[in-house]
Design a protein around this nucleic acid. Structure first.
Length: 494
RNA sequence: GGCAUCGUGGCCGAGUGGCUAGGCACAGCUCUGCAAAAGCUUGUACAGCGGUUCGAAUCCGCUCGAUGCCUCCA
């Protein structure tokens, strides 16, 4: 019996506008697609938050026993600077700017993306397809949409006919917009001549002679529209209708709306059962954005080299900080918030360490572990509520510490159970790492510090406090903090 | 202007028609040669104004404010 048979998972569905009970199309299997990055610059922390939310979701679904096929694409072509006639591919533009081959740009920032995500301890997706690797599939979809009459060719480009589509389908159902309103509110934009309506979007764009990224097609040399690649790659690997489609909130309109339109136009039915949107990470109260320069890069956080930061923060601390907020809420990044999360994170890690060392005794436990365990599952089942899960983990820490102080007791059996649950949620589901322990060179260092601790304890025994305080204070200056406890002195690196 | 979301104690951030979120900070206590660290304990907040209700921070309406999307962005 799998865990998912005992737990009822509810998911916030942007399409229905409420929390829906999750029921996969095929029992035991989940197909999940998440819109990946456009690799024309380094991934910033806001991008990371979205992918982290879905990493956590991927982890929990796997933990529940689902066989998950998680597809997250790399957009390496087709992402236009804007939708006007002079629209240029982002990758191509960057390549021109840096005098690189477009694929050189793609490679550089794809590597950066992977390295960054690895530092945050992301699980790799099952498939990571690229847009340029699926040009043929995209052309096939365009042909199908043309055949169904929901697109038209104009001067070597192909556009999706939104107004016609809206007569039989509902364009705007995901984002809660009405086509009439959109038309009424459209500002007069120049150079939209090819399109029948400003709301129409490109499926295929004709490549002007100076364009370096181009592919042959039935409509001449060109490149695919941005929205199309996700339709092509998601349906290719997950089927015409699949379970979960995720992405950042900012993609809801027009990107995801267009994906729905493309899929419905080509296959005749809705592509996705559960649309999930992760909310934005803000900086100074504003959305992080590549185009406005209001952003911060992961490496700046890890090194502390940014004017808003007072010190560096480890990837796990940042991960913990993000998971302390619900993925559907806006989260604002600040030095104070990171400092608070860091303290909390180390408290949690200390609790886990204490759990290993406490001694079990007797047959009773002053802590209802099965009920507590179910509360942990209830939190995650309620739309992946990691902040609540974390609050329960701190409740466990409290009991662990009380046991350590001898004020409560735990049986050996319960201790084993508790250890198993806590480790599962902290490391497997939340994906946190105890990075302090895993750094290299620690063996030599701990030998040296232990020696100094011995010398200091000798001095203390002789009431030579001048010497003992000198050792303590000078180590602290070096970033090594001694901690005098009941069972001797330990140290941590600050 | 349109659509959407949100406004919670010093800070971050959950949740909810009546019952303790949690973390950080502050304070008190324990421990300590003194500290630090650690641990324990404590906090009755929900933008404003109306309304529904036995009861609302939670539902409805209005006002104010913030953010996102409407053009590329996770």
């Amino acid at each position: 019996m799998q865990l998912f048979e005992q737990q009822t998972l509810q998911i916030s569905n942007s399409l229905s506008g409420k929390k829906d009970i999750f029921k996969p199309i095929k029992e035991g299997y989940v197909g999940m697609y998440v819109c990946g990055p456009t690799v024309y610059s380094n991934v910033h922390l806001g991008n990371c938050r979205t992918f982290m939310s879905f990493d956590m979701i991927f982890r929990y679904l796997k933990h529940l026993g689902y066989k998950v096929r998680y597809v997250r694409n790399i957009t390496d072509a087709g992402h236009l600077e804007n939708d006007a006639d002079d629209g240029e591919d982002k990758i191509a533009k960057k390549a021109k700017l840096e005098q690189l081959e477009p694929m050189e740009v793609v490679q550089r920032y794809t590597v950066d993306f992977h390295e960054t995500l690895q530092q945050f301890n992301f699980l790799p997706p099952s498939i990571e397809p690229t847009a340029t690797g699926h040009i043929i599939e995209q052309i096939e979809i365009i042909k199908e949409i043309l055949k169904k009459g929901f697109a038209y060719e104009a001067n070597g480009s192909v556009y999706f006919d939104v107004i016609k589509f809206n007569k039989t389908n509902d364009y705007g159902k995901l984002s809660g917009r009405k086509l009439e309103d959109m038309i009424a509110n459209t500002r007069a934009l120049a150079a939209q001549d090819e399109k029948k309506s400003p709301q129409d979007f490109a499926l295929w764009k004709k490549a002007e002679p100076q364009h370096i990224m181009r592919w042959p097609s039935p409509w001449g040399d060109g490149f695919p529209g941005w929205h199309l690649e996700c339709t092509a790659m998601s349906t290719k690997y997950l089927g015409d209708t699949f379970d979960i489609h995720g992405g950042g909130m900012d993609l809801k309109f027009p990107h995801h709306e267009c994906e729905i339109a493309q899929a419905e136009a080509s296959t005749g039915h809705s592509p996705v059962n559960y649309w999930m949107h992760a909310n934005m990470l803000t900086l100074n109260g504003k959305k992080m954005s590549k185009s406005t320069d209001n952003n911060i890069y992961p490496n700046e956080i890890f090194s502390g080299e940014n004017s808003i930061l007072s010190k560096p923060f480890s990837p796990s601390v940042v991960r913990f900080f993000m998971l302390q907020a619900h993925y559907t809420s806006i989260l604002d990044l600040s030095n104070d918030a990171l400092l608070a999360s860091e303290k909390g994170f180390y408290r949690l890690m200390e609790g886990l360490k204490n759990l290993e060392t406490i001694t079990a005794s007797g047959t009773t436990t002053d802590f209802d572990i099965p009920a507590w365990q179910q509360r942990c599952y209830d939190a995650m089942n309620d739309d992946f509520n990691t902040p609540i899960l974390i609050s329960h983990l701190f409740e466990a820490v409290k009991h662990i510490n009380l046991i350590k102080e001898g004020k409560e007791s735990i049986s050996q059996k319960d201790k084993d159970v508790l250890q198993n649950i806590v480790n599962t949620f902290v490391f497997d589901v939340l994906g946190l790492e105890n990075q302090k322990e895993s750094s290299g060179n620690t063996k030599t260092l701990s030998g040296v510090v232990d020696l100094l601790i011995q010398l200091r304890n000798n001095a203390r025994a002789n009431k030579d406090f001048a010497t003992s305080d000198k050792i303590r204070d000078e180590l602290l200056e070096l970033g090594i903090q001694l901690k005098d406890g009941k069972e001797g002195t330990t140290f941590t690196l600050n």
